[in-house]
């Protein structure tokens, strides 16, 4: 598994196309930057800028995500966290700066975005090279507990089932980087807990680097190796979550971290219920 990061070509602001050879050679750092212990990175961002008209949403942002790390990106609504995710997914290329991501990456969006005219299993293997591979789809669906729904139309799935299908569709690509844009946002509380647990188990088995965008601090602390808080267009705060898994929401360290993160997100009053 070669860890070659793909540079996102920026046709608007960056006239130099193609893959930078530096990307292959261990990502020579910009000034003042120390690489982490694992030399392989799943995301490397330097000086990223994204502006909508005169409104600069992301302003000279730097970010490194080591391979296999579960990173949760928190931030108030409109802080640019979803924009960052879209840039890492190569869906938004009107950017300045240097962004490198693996060639094998996958996205699960807030809404499942399944093609309604394709049966569940065909949705899962859509875009994979070669003929649609039923067995491969079945294996991926089995991982999310949906092997029985392989032949169903997406319209017949419940919200949780559709979101799990979307996860299976992301994982069947064996991504080195899995981008999750509030994938539990539209689920009810119970389904949400199950889905979080599922994501955690899938991550443990496949070990992609994960960037999960959310505004739910508790969710972040249940899942993350590292929690990031985005503010004013940059990563304003980064905290390593050194808690054993599975995690306990009643743990004092957990609660302290939670209060700290909520404070940084501008919620000062400690809440007793999430």
């Amino acid at each position: 598994m070669a860890s070659s990061l793909q540079r996102i070509v920026t046709p608007v602001l960056d006239p130099e196309p193609g893959i930078d050879p530096a990307a292959e050679a261990g990502l020579e750092p910009a000034s003042g930057y120390r690489p982490p212990a694992d030399p392989r990175l799943a995301v490397s961002v330097r000086g990223l800028t994204r502006a909508f008209a005169s409104n600069t949403v992301i302003d000279r942002l730097d970010l490194d995500v080591p391979a296999g790390q579960f990173v949760v990106l928190l931030g108030a609504s409109g802080c640019g966290k979803s924009t960052l995710l879209r840039i890492l997914a190569d869906l938004d290329t009107e950017i300045g700066g240097d962004v490198r991501v693996p060639a094998r990456r996958a996205v699960a969006f807030q809404s499942p975005r399944l093609l309604p005219w394709k049966r569940v299993w065909r949705n899962v293997v859509l875009g994979l090279p070669g003929r649609p591979d039923r067995a491969r789809a079945a294996a991926a669906l089995a991982e999310v507990g949906l092997e029985a729904r392989a032949e169903a139309w997406p319209k017949t799935l419940s919200g949780g089932e559709a979101q799990r299908t979307s996860l299976a569709r992301a994982l069947v690509r064996e991504p080195e980087l899995l981008l999750l844009d509030e994938p539990f946002g539209a689920l009810d509380a119970l389904t949400r807990l199950k889905a979080q647990d599922l994501v955690w188990r899938l991550w443990r088995r496949h070990r992609p680097a994960v960037l999960l965008v959310t505004h739910d601090v508790e969710e972040a602390l249940l899942l993350a190796d590292r929690a990031l808080v985005m503010k004013d267009g940059v990563i304003a705060h980064s905290v390593d979550v050194d808690l054993s898994r599975p995690r306990d929401v009643g743990d004092p360290t957990f609660l302290a971290l939670r209060a700290d993160l909520l404070g940084r997100l501008g919620v000062d009053a400690p809440r007793s219920v999430a």
Binding site: D90, R113, G127
Partner: peptide, 15 residues
């Protein structure tokens, strides 16, 4: 949204 999702799945223009 579907077009975007399909792009992240690596579909070619023809696909």
């Amino acid at each position: 949204g579907l077009v975007e999702a399909a792009r992240t799945l690596g579909l070619s223009r023809f696909g």
